[in-house]
Amino acid sequence: MRLILPGMARQPGTKDHWHERPFSTLGSIGLSLVAFLRPAWGISKIPLRDTPSFGMPLGDIVGKSSALTVVTPLWCSWINRFLLGLYRTLPAQFFPLVNLQMIHFARWVILPKDRWPGRSKKFKTRYSYLLFSSNFNGTWDVYLDEFSDVISLGMDTMWYRSIGYPKSIPSRPFKAYIDDNSIECSYYYNALPGFSLRDVASALKVRKAIHFLEEKLAEINQDTTTSAATKDDLFFQQFESVVANLVNHLPSTGKPPLHAAHGTRELNL
């Protein structure tokens, strides 16, 4: 049986009428015409886009989360240390990134050129290095596009003194830079492989709503002057108002993508 939640207006499975989404319908017709006429115009051999082979190594994906590990050379790392310190005083600058709900955990670590762990002080590299490690949802392309579109200034200041850093706009050289400096994980563990950050945020809201209803239920039950029917009515009102606000946080989380195991990894080698 289909689940009916408060606020559900459209029947799932019903299609939009063409006049409700004119641009997508016209766009589809246009694309079909282009595909049909391309050989006639003699442009069938011209590639639509010169797409480089960027992407995510399969070993870096576990369930709905992916790992990204980037090591880049830094010149004058104290400036980056200072900028990262400045960012710690400005948490509101990251609110757009937080609202995207793509990254679970991320870290920026400056590795000083004269303090490599396990090495004597005599060993010194020419540059310091910036290690960036992230656990995110979605595809590699979309993730870096978000960096480029939403917090480009933030990313540019984080990698401010990185050698060869092309800035995050336009996104293509930025992606090439990240791809060139990435290292694949040999082992990656994710405690909640079936859930994205949005799923977690929804679950936290549901739990808060349950606690809220629990308190209301206790209040209603404690009132000895009202009848059972009135108590049912009072709780129903509370329940209805809360569930109406949870509509977008209750549906199923969906299936996670296929992971790379055994045969797939061997094929890549």
């Binding site: 240390r81 990262l84 960012y87 710690r88 990251f94 609110f95 937080v98 709900q101 990254i103 679970h104 955990f105 991320a106 870290r107 920026w108 670590v109 400056i110 984080m158 950050l197 977690v200 945020a201 936290l204 809201k205 808060k208 709503a209 809220f212 209803l213 509370q238 108002s241 809360v242 606000n245 949870l246």
Partner: peptide
């Protein structure tokens, strides 16, 4: 040098959210 945890900000938002 710079840790980022979205769970903290998500929890902050949920804390400020009124379910009713």
């Amino acid at each position: 040098t710079y840790p980022f945890s979205a769970y903290f900000w998500v929890a902050d938002k949920v804390k400020r959210w009124n379910p009713s």
